[in-house]
């Protein structure tokens, strides 16, 4: 017989982690689930409501609008940031002092706290004194991001592109740097055009990092809150009220804990679903 040492005490070793995860993830999540199925009144009075809030949220036009805006926003910034990031990564120098300079410049926007980004762009875009706002008005545009829906969107999207394209650039650059020189040399000998080099060497080699970049930007943009909150506060009207901003309005503005909880669960599931679909699609492509 083999003498196996069985030591169940080892389980205690994972207790601290379990406690931590429970404290910052499981318990809050379960609280939300708890709220989402009950009606809350002052004095800690709770009444069972079942799936009523979920039905209400799913039918609410306000939620549909916020979700629509959210999807549009995410689509827009992905369409801009991914190609732009790839393009910048391709033009970055491969050696010399320029590499360090570019990397530092690229990393800068990523290091700025999100609310500061919002505040910066707010001042930058003010139509009367901001550099961007004043300039745009000076060249003849009727630019005012606090009153005009189009300009509000343009400013929010521009801000996100400024803030996050660097992430795509850095990831793609890392992918490009991992391509051995022999590939470029072989393609030269084969007489490939620079488009073919991009299409058949660089893009396939960047695929993994692009998947990661896309997923990160998808999730992050879907959860965007701070920057548009500081910049536009969700306005003018509700035109830049994305899901997270709407959620906070419901939960903390109106203090409708039930609907807010139901909404956050739906929100969470949507993000999860999107990521899963995207990831599966990309991985299936990989194995074929």
């Amino acid at each position: 017989m083999i003498n196996k040492t069985i030591n169940q005490k080892a389980w205690f070793m994972v207790l601290p982690v379990l406690a931590l995860v429970a404290f910052n993830a499981i318990i809050p999540l379960m609280t939300v689930v708890n709220y989402s199925v009950q009606e809350t009144f002052g004095d800690n009075l709770f009444f069972w409501e079942g799936l009523k809030w979920f039905e209400e949220v799913m039918r609410s036009e306000r939620f549909h609008d916020a979700l629509g805006r959210q999807l549009l926003f995410t689509l827009l910034i992905l369409l801009i940031e991914v190609p732009l990031g790839v393009g910048i990564a391709l033009t970055m120098p491969r050696q010399g002092i320029g590499v360090t300079i570019c990397l530092v410049l690229m990393a800068l926007p990523l290091l700025i706290p999100w609310n500061v980004v919002g505040a910066m762009w707010n001042i930058f875009a003010l139509p009367d004194i901001g550099l961007l706002g004043k300039m745009l008005n000076g060249v003849g545009f009727d630019y005012n991001f606090t009153q005009n829906t189009f300009w509000a969107w343009a400013t929010v999207v521009a801000m996100d592109v400024w803030h996050w394209t660097s992430l795509v650039v850095l990831l793609c650059y890392a992918g490009l740097r991992s391509i051995p020189d022999a590939y470029y040399q072989a393609s030269k000998i084969d007489g490939a055009t620079s488009w073919q080099v991009f299409r058949y060497i660089q893009l396939p080699k960047m695929k993994r990092v692009l998947t990661i970049a896309l997923l990160l930007r998808l999730m992050d943009s879907f959860m965007i809150y701070t920057e548009p909150f500081v910049l536009t506060g969700g306005g003018p009207g509700n035109s830049t009220t994305f899901l997270s901003i709407d959620l906070v309005k419901v939960a903390l503005g109106q203090f409708d804990l039930g609907p807010a909880a139901a909404m956050s669960i739906i929100y969470f599931l949507v993000v999860l679903l999107l990521c899963w679909v995207l990831y599966t699609l990309m991985m299936r492509n990989e194995t074929n």
Binding site: P180, A182, Y183, Q185, A186, K188, I189, D190, G191, Y200, I201, P204, K205
Partner: peptide, 21 residues
């Protein structure tokens, strides 16, 4: 002359293939 006009072929230390093709 550049490499593509010299009509040479080269096999490198690490295999170079176009992965997606």
């Amino acid at each position: 002359l550049p490499p593509d006009q010299r009509n040479i072929a080269q096999v490198f230390q690490f295999p170079v293939v176009y992965d997606t093709m």
